[in-house]
Amino acid sequence: MQVYLEFEKPIAEMEGKIAELRAISKDDPEVNILNEVTRLEEKVATQLEKTYKSLNPWQKTLVARHPSRPHFVDYIDHLVDDFTPLSGDRLYSDDQAIIAGLGRWQGRRVAIMGHEKGANTQARLKHNFGMARPEGYRKAIRVMELAERFNIPLVTLVDTSGAYPGIGAEERGQSEAIARCTEKCLQIGVPFVSVIVGEGGSGGALALATANRILMLEHSIYSVASPEACASILWRSREKAKEAAEALKVTAESLSDLGVIDRILKEPVGGAHRERNLVIDQVGDAVIEELDSLSHLSADELRRDRRQKFLDMGRQGIT
């Protein structure tokens, strides 16, 4: 079933009407609905285009969190052959908020990891809504080391509202795990491409996104804090999330202007959730292109490229 966002109300109404008309014609084939349906469909297309051309940062936040937006497992299903998940941090447990493994990305050998939010209630609970605990980051570190040892390029897909804030997570060193994971990102001597496919929430996202190339889907967001958290800190009210999203400059376009991301991947009209396979294929191709562009670099050059990229950030181009 199509899930509509709050600003998609007019679209929801028109698509509802189309569905109704189709139902009527099914019951009574005598009724000619073709003209009306075509007219409505055109209107939907225009409305979608209009709406999605000028999404504000808060609306983009909602699109980035859309429940039907392709998740990590969808990318794996479509793009990766021989996917072989690797579990556990060898220290405490396996955290399913981050999935990691080996496979062939459009035929290319890669280590791949990312946050999985889950597509239904059961999956969301299993994956803790994509909010990782220290074990998730420690698993990521372990698989990054493995990738380096066997000279396998690394791809990460980022989609999390942030690392999990809980007693156990703190007890077992959430900050240490994130710090080490970010450090490991900077250390490994293999090509490393990261795509922010949904939400890039704070340190929990950064720990998997400190890559040679950082790509971002058009309606994804990446931010130091969720708009709600920022609103509650600075406005003292979560209700001001819309204002916070605006002020935080969370969109791909703003982040590209600030020099934080390298490339924006266009989404189909109406967002990634409307044409999932199209988006997934596009991510698939873009990752291959970026991996190719890094393939001539030695391990040391890759490391240096990554360190320099981050050192340079903010030193130029911002007034």
Binding site: C185, L186, G203, L206, T210, Y222, S223, V224, G314
Partner: peptide
Amino acid sequence: GIMSLMQMPRTT
């Protein structure tokens, strides 16, 4: 915003 977050990898 994000420029603040980027200080984490930069300092690392």
